[in-house]
Computed example of a mutant assay.
Amino acid sequence: MGRDDVMGNTDRLAQLSGAGVSIWLDDLSRERLRSGNLADLIRHKHVVGVTTNPTIFASALSKGEAYDEQIRELAARGADVHTAVRELTTSDVRDAADLFRDVHTATNGTDGRVSIEVDPGLARDTERTVAEAEQLWKTVDRPNILVKIPATEQGLPAITRTLADGISVNVTLIFSVERYRAVIEAFFAGLERAKANGHDLSAIESVASFFVSRVDTEVDKRLEAIGTAEALALRGEAAIANARLAYAAYEEAFTSERWQSLKAAGANPQRPLWASTGVKNPDYSDTRYVDELVVAGTVNTMPEKTLDAVADHANVQGDTVTGTAAEAQRVFDRLAEVGIDVSDVFRTLEDEGVEKFDTSWVELLDTVRGQLDAAKAQG
């Protein structure tokens, strides 16, 4: 690859960053940290944050030898599998947070963030979610992490209580605009309590992770089952329209008097984060969930495959979101007209999302349990 190609690739990511979109990598592994890959992405690909989830850690722990030394140490100590998983994952998150320290400083705490998720098995348990969020925050012990809490009904009060304790939160698994409004309410309530508790609001950051591609996957499947010309014409329309409606809800909430009062007290806005931006349908452009969701003050977290695609051939045309709400609403009106039960779509996606992460968590526990047993046998 020639220098012009490299510069051209970097320029597309620079354009996206210049448009006000923070580029975060949706992946983390010890191999990335040790090989210098993540540091390289920070230097050359405008990556200013990282998100993790149980699936990412399950994949990382099942590959290679990067964790072997720590596994042997944990086995020698007689650590149980839950302790081992938390030590392994929080070690990676701590090291990544240290790697992003300069970004965190340069952006006054906005970026340079690394997310770690509470046990997804707790997604329907408010009390235990709050307790684990606090434990993760203390264990990693870095100011630039975000604790991920799912936006289930039981997760909403946990989000408020965690923020009230001065802990920065990444709200995950948001699918519907209705639930997103409830997340914003939980965020406002959390900051108001944090202020009452004497916390410095300027030190608290939050993002709201609005899932994108999975909406198209589920809606397209239902449209194909309906099979009419009107239904088929709507394939690939739902996810971007949904995200654009979410942004309109964000604009409305973050111009309110309630927000202005929090802002005056030093609060940072809860930025919309576009998650699940890897394209699952090969008929669609592999950069569509980036190109079509460019707007300042947002985050796009992408797997490396999508990051590379954006670097290579994204079509960054500036703001593609502001002022699109009416058009986006028409998409949903048409979906209802052809027989799509949108509420059922979102319920299904939330249930599947919780279940997928829970399954990955069990796989992670099984992998580490096997590694601990093998280390004990060798020891």
Score class of each variant (00 low, 15 high):
268 N>K: 15
171 V>F: 03
167 I>A: 12
240 I>W: 05
250 Y>C: 07
266 G>E: 05
262 L>W: 08
218 E>M: 14
263 K>V: 06
261 S>T: 13
283 D>K: 15
238 A>D: 10
253 A>T: 05
243 A>N: 00
184 I>V: 15
241 A>M: 04
225 A>D: 13
213 S>V: 01
231 A>V: 12
198 G>V: 12
161 R>H: 04
161 R>C: 00
194 A>K: 03
216 D>F: 12
241 A>L: 03
273 L>Y: 02
242 N>K: 07
162 T>K: 10
189 A>S: 12
198 G>P: 09
212 V>K: 04
252 E>H: 07
164 A>T: 07
232 L>D: 13
196 A>Y: 05
237 E>L: 08
267 A>Q: 08
256 S>N: 12
173 L>V: 10
294 V>I: 11
239 A>H: 08
177 V>N: 11
221 K>A: 15
271 R>M: 03
215 V>T: 13
208 A>C: 11
256 S>E: 12
216 D>H: 12
266 G>M: 02
158 A>P: 02
164 A>G: 14
262 L>H: 10
159 I>F: 06
213 S>M: 05
262 L>G: 10
218 E>C: 08
234 L>T: 09
163 L>Q: 05
225 A>T: 14
236 G>S: 11
176 S>D: 11
218 E>R: 15
296 A>C: 08
162 T>S: 13
199 H>P: 11
278 G>A: 15
202 S>D: 12
220 D>K: 11
219 V>F: 06
178 E>K: 13
282 P>K: 11
251 E>S: 08
199 H>M: 02
255 T>I: 11
210 F>T: 03
183 V>I: 02
254 F>I: 06
207 V>L: 04
294 V>W: 01
249 A>D: 02
263 K>Q: 15
227 G>I: 09
237 E>A: 15
285 S>K: 15
180 Y>R: 10
199 H>A: 04
259 W>F: 12
212 V>D: 08
158 A>L: 06
158 A>W: 01
183 V>L: 03
239 A>W: 00
